[in-house]
């Protein structure tokens, strides 16, 4: 809990990441509260995805501490990590669906791994989750290669949500989608966040997504994070942030 009485589900303190001799993250601090949608923005190569990968334990930062749901990600043993992994879901940029399995089988992977349900119940749950993310029953039996990019993202979101995680991590959720598809996906994330009381941590470029979904925004510039709402960040003096929110695209999206 912090001073406002809100529960903190992700807490970063002094995170330092170097790739080669380039300093990507220069002592980052960040708190994400339960039930909010936190969006991380930043230029290409600024280390947004690296940050996400560090939080979910795919990469090890050079220094600092990362706590998710009160547990120290960097110090957890294998079993502790497994217990934590059941409580979050990750949506990768291109979906990362397993290409040898059908969409329904993909969604059932965590169920098969962590529970002992009957195949019948798993089929029902896969169908329910797929329909929650707006996919019809014809999609369930298809293989990922037969789906469009937007459908793959939705299927991957269904897989990320199947165990009712407390946190979902979204890496560029709307990249590669057409504007209508992207707007639908934003709405979907918002709806699911409300009905399942999710905490969402997303990395994005998309200004429309920011405006439509994000409660707070963390801007990653020159290895440092600036956190605020769209309104407070628009008044920030940093040239990159100015350019981002007040450039032609920013003005159009936020108008």
């Amino acid at each position: 809990m912090d001073g406002d009485g809100k529960e903190i589900v992700i807490r970063l303190r002094g995170v330092v990441t170097r790739i080669g001799d380039r300093l990507i993250h220069d002592h980052l601090d960040l708190d994400v509260h339960r039930g909010e949608i936190m969006a991380v923005v930043g230029g290409s190569g600024s280390g947004k995805s690296v940050l996400l990968r560090s939080i979910v334990g795919l990469m090890r930062p050079n220094g600092g501490s990362i706590e998710v749901l009160g547990r120290d990600v960097l110090g957890l043993d294998e079993e502790g990590m497994r217990a934590l992994q059941m409580r979050w879901g990750v949506l990768f940029q291109d979906g990362a669906l397993f290409s040898s399995q059908s969409v329904a089988e993909n969604v059932q992977v965590p169920l098969r791994e962590y529970t002992s349900m009957s195949q019948e119940l798993m089929n029902e749950i896969a169908a329910m989750k797929l329909s929650m993310v707006g996919l019809g029953e014809d999609a369930a039996t298809k293989h990922p290669s037969e789906l469009s990019g937007g459908m793959r993202k939705r299927a991957s979101l269904a897989r990320a949500l199947v165990l009712d995680p407390e946190i979902v991590f979204l890496d560029e959720p709307t990249s590669g989608l057409d504007p209508i598809g992207a707007a639908n996906f934003d709405q979907l994330v918002r709806d699911l966040q409300k009905s399942l009381n999710l905490t969402v941590f997303m990395v994005t470029h998309d200004l429309d997504t920011l405006r439509a979904t994000a409660d707070r925004i963390a801007v990653l510039v020159n290895g440092r994070l600036k956190v605020g709402t769209i309104e407070s960040l628009r008044n920030d003096r940093d040239p990159w942030i100015q350019e981002y929110f007040s450039g032609p695209r920013g003005r159009a999206a936020l108008a």
Binding site: A104, M128, L130, D138, D191, S195
Partner: peptide
Amino acid sequence: ATIESEHMVPP
């Protein structure tokens, strides 16, 4: 309510 509105017959 969400689950009920998204009810779908498994294939």
